[in-house]
Design a protein around this nucleic acid. Structure first.
Lengths: 259, 259
DNA sequence: ATTGTTTATGCACGTTCATACCGATTCATG
DNA sequence: CATGAATCGGTATGAACGTGCATAAACAAT
């Protein structure tokens, strides 16, 4: 890298590095960009103030929401559990299902009734591991380089593997949902992968916590349509669900959860 | 000498370990992260103050609300841990390593020092999941149909993916070891996969609990040779290790484990 | 072209932080 | 209650930090 980068360019580069490895060290960056550590510290301070990273002693970390360890089970487990139980009603014996990455989808797999027989394909190792604890699932993994933010394989190899599947149902993971913008995502490669997954499946199911309702992210995965089922929490506002229903999607609302 | 993890990252790693096994010991953590016990105690004190764990004499416990996950591999963990720590000495920064299925190999991945940077490929989802909890591993999965006995992908698709790898080291999983018969396995498809994996790698490492020494299974994976390192437990009989050494393999013996 | 203003950067200074070590104290256990 | 391990508090040290200031470049207005 040449030393004459604009400060904005340098900060963008730091953001990319943060996305990729989840952490940066002030000393490393100073050496890499051939500027003083003071400058890097100022960059990191500004970025933290703008909410783009978390400043820590020695460098900075990616925000928890974008961090490598995207399996944040336990945070809102009760809610996800209720959502999962509702989503499970859509699954029938003998189906072939593709399960996309996401902690909600992990909860869904963990909530599968022991009697159900499915062929389950996934690109997320944590989901595959959970599926193997179920007695009657045939498990297929989609391989490739694992993206640490997503916790799943989403590269070219993964897309190629995905071409071989024509699942009866695709269970899509965390993204923004908006009646106008449709399903949207934050990470370009991840969105590209999800798009293919959704297009190949006969039907699509999205289990979605309330905080994602109305969110619009930079990249479009798919428009809402009548091949799609949304599973929402019990506390989803009626106004929003009504708006969503105009697009033709089926809405499946979870039971309220105590606590 | 401190590990090059930021203190915040270390605390995050401790939280993950807490979620998984429900408890952590100060001494273990100090050894694992290569910092003094004082530092670990400070971490635990801070985390307890922040309400992230419960501090107890000797270590810390997960909060009751976050406790329940599947119970760990319990009994033989001490032995496998020792074996893993010995095997880890063979890994150097920047290597590309293929890790075969097996609970011993899972332990090896969990024992990787946080400072080590590797590219790690595996066909076992549980190993991929464990690898993602390490901050500096580039993880690649080999996809395909998962064999429930093995817990990993071993079919045609997996073999095809494997062709694309020429790792510096292949860490082979559970099998029989005999100085005359070499490495042997029980499941035909699994053996076929292991054979390819071993043949593609510049070197092979097998971490092997004492009960597998002298065992001969129906299918041959590979003969013992000078490209191969065996990691044995401290209690491996001298007679057996001497016999193995005549084949040219390098023997690496683990430290005895207390208890 | 000149002047003043903003911005980015580096340097010097004192401060804070993370850590290891040491001694005193507390704890679990026989 | 005796003993060794775990813990706490204090201290020392070096690295990382923030601030203030000076310099230099970019920019705007004259």
């Amino acid at each position: 890298m040449s030393s004459d980068l604009l400060s904005r360019e340098r900060q963008d580069a730091i953001r990319i590095e943060l996305r990729q490895s989840g952490r940066v060290l002030a000393g490393d960056l100073a050496r890499h960009f051939k500027v003083s550590e003071d400058t890097i510290r100022r960059d990191l301070r500004d970025m933290a103030a703008a909410g783009l990273c978390e400043r820590v002693y020695g460098g900075a970390l990616a925000l928890p929401s974008e961090q490598p360890f995207s399996v944040r089970t336990g945070i809102s487990r009760g809610r996800k559990q209720a959502l999962a139980e509702a989503a499970v009603t859509r699954l029938k014996d003998g189906m072939t299902v593709f399960v996309d990455a996401g902690s909600t989808n992990l909860a869904i797999v963990q909530a599968l009734p022991p009697g159900l027989s499915l062929t389950l394909a996934t690109n997320m190792p944590a989901i595959a591991t959970a599926a193997l604890e179920h007695p009657r699932l045939e498990v297929i993994t989609i391989g490739g380089r694992i993206d640490r933010h997503v916790g799943a394989a989403i590269g070219r190899q993964a897309e190629r593997d995905l071409q071989m599947l024509r699942p009866d149902l695709c269970i899509l993971g965390a993204c923004g949902i908006d009646s106008a913008a449709g399903l949207t995502g934050l990470v370009y490669d991840d969105v590209a992968f999800k798009t293919i997954a959704a297009a190949h499946a006969a039907a699509v199911l999205v289990a979605c916590t309330t905080d994602k309702l109305g969110a619009v992210h930079p990249f479009v995965i798919a428009a809402l349509n009548d091949r799609m089922t949304l599973t929402l929490e019990a506390d989803a506002p009626d106004a929003v669900t009504a708006g969503l229903e105009t697009t033709g999607v089926t809405i499946l609302q979870a039971q309220p959860v105590a606590g």
